[in-house]
Amino acid sequence: MAKIKIDEIRCKGCYLCITSCPQGLIKVSDRLNIKGTKPARFKGGKCTGCSMCAIICPDCIIQVYR
């Protein structure tokens, strides 16, 4: 099973990853990070490791495992 890791501390909340995930597995977190932003959060589920989220992430803070 593939998965992603989002560095929620560095996430600025552009949410481009959310619109890019074909499986809809990323959501806006309920909690604020230190920047006062609600970071993107990986919900878990049927991640295929397609890496679209990491490819679009402007801050290079998503790691993909497969």
Binding site: K12, P58, D59, C60
Partner: peptide, 16 residues
Amino acid sequence: MRDVEMHYCAGCGHGL
């Protein structure tokens, strides 16, 4: 790429 946080605004294309 250095492992540091970039100063760009959210969604800025520069980081990409």
